[in-house]
Amino acid sequence: MANLFRLFAAAPFTARFGMIVILIVAVIGLFAPLIAPYGETAVVGAQYEPWSRQYLLGTDNLGRDMFTRLVYGTRNTVGLALLTTVIAFTIGSILGILAALLGRMTDRILSRIIDVIMAIPSLILALMLLTIVGTSIASMVFVIALIYVAPVFRLARASAQTVVVMDYVQAARLRGERLPWLILREVLPNIASTLVAEFGLRFCFVFLFIAALSFLGLGIQPPTADWGSMLRENATLISFGDVTPLLPAAAIALLTVSINFVIDWMLHRASGLKD
């Protein structure tokens, strides 16, 4: 704990800022029902009420409390992005390490499949897949996870490849160690830091991706509160010069900026320690 605090104190301003924002978002997401004054989908007033003591940030196009929906949106948008990233990472990194360790046909087949997925722009691929499987939360998570397996696979394979040529991996192989040991004990610990940094970056992409899909009306479906669709539903207000609809988008921006600040610092630290 004391170590963590010292690490925090030594970080540059941008990274400290990022860590605080991430912490706040996590707390809001976890305790959403305690923080929000109203129910997630409850209609509590007239359409587009202004900011007031009763409606902190006013109401939306259906008369639901904006602040409440913003708080619940934290949980939905961030939670789904996290779930999707975890799925993509688990599959992608295991396949990537496997391809690097086994080489030959396994590597060639997996890499070709991934190449084809990567050759289609991800937003286009996602939209086409969503046309086929239909728009629902489950299918969205499935489609985005599938798409993001590709870059994770590439990174895990590339970093694992620099590890599998090391003599200590050869020593373990010549000892007769089995695949689970090689993956979990020899390779994974040595690429973990790369994967963690990549996890942060990919989470940002996935998060922006989900927000963009919801904004286009093809992601998280109403009446579930989420940051992307909140902007879409209330965009009309902007043409009257009202900033309220921009708040969810600003929340998205704030969180991704914060994560990027923290990762940039982590990567900088890692590369600094190397030389």
């Binding site: 941008t14 940002c204 922006l208 927000a211 963009a212 904004f215 992307g228 902007l231 921009l246 988008a249 600003a250 998205i252 921006a253 991704t256 900026v257 994560i259 990027n260 600040f261 940039d264």
Partner: peptide, 10 residues
Amino acid sequence: LVCVSLPEFF
């Protein structure tokens, strides 16, 4: 870093 993090619609 800030620019990379911003959603296009924002």
